[in-house]
């Protein structure tokens, strides 16, 4: 089963990279969203897959039965999901604010910090 999901993860990474390479802010946002899911899925697959036996200890037992799913990647992913969600939300607000201030969603036109053309500030001899 790992094989199927590994290929899916590859596809997700490819799509997110394509979206992140765009100049459109909206596509960047979508790219970050896909990237998050790709990463979570990757960690999940790295911990190997076990069908339908969650990492719980049955009542009456002191230790888990063998054959349960790997709990460690799950713990990692759980926090990762929540963190990537809060960062995603922050990114959304940031994008919206950038659009409000700069009146564009084309990142090529967002040049407040590094005005066009690049490097003119640095090119002088006496820095």
């Amino acid at each position: 089963m790992e094989t199927v999901l590994a290929l899916l993860v590859g596809l997700l990474f490819a799509i997110s990279a394509y979206l992140l390479l765009s100049s459109s802010l909206i596509r960047l946002i979508l790219g970050v969203f896909v990237l998050g899911n790709a990463t979570h899925l990757m960690i999940f697959v790295l911990g190997r897959l076990t069908r339908e036996s969650p990492p719980l200890i049955q009542y009456g037992l002191k230790a888990a039965e063998p054959g349960i799913a790997n709990p460690l990647p799950q713990a990692l992913i759980l926090t990762a999901i929540v963190i990537s969600f809060s960062l995603f939300a922050f990114l959304l607000v940031l994008s919206y604010r950038a659009y409000q201030s700069l009146d564009t969603i084309n990142t090529d036109e967002m040049r407040v910090a590094e005005p066009e053309p690049a490097g003119t500030l640095l090119r002088g001899r006496d820095v």
Binding site: V82, F85, S86, A89, F90, L92, V93, Y96
Partner: peptide
């Protein structure tokens, strides 16, 4: 923390 932060973001939006 989760409730506070996410509700805060939702309110902001």
């Amino acid at each position: 923390v989760v409730v506070g932060a996410i509700v805060g973001i939702a309110f902001a939006l």
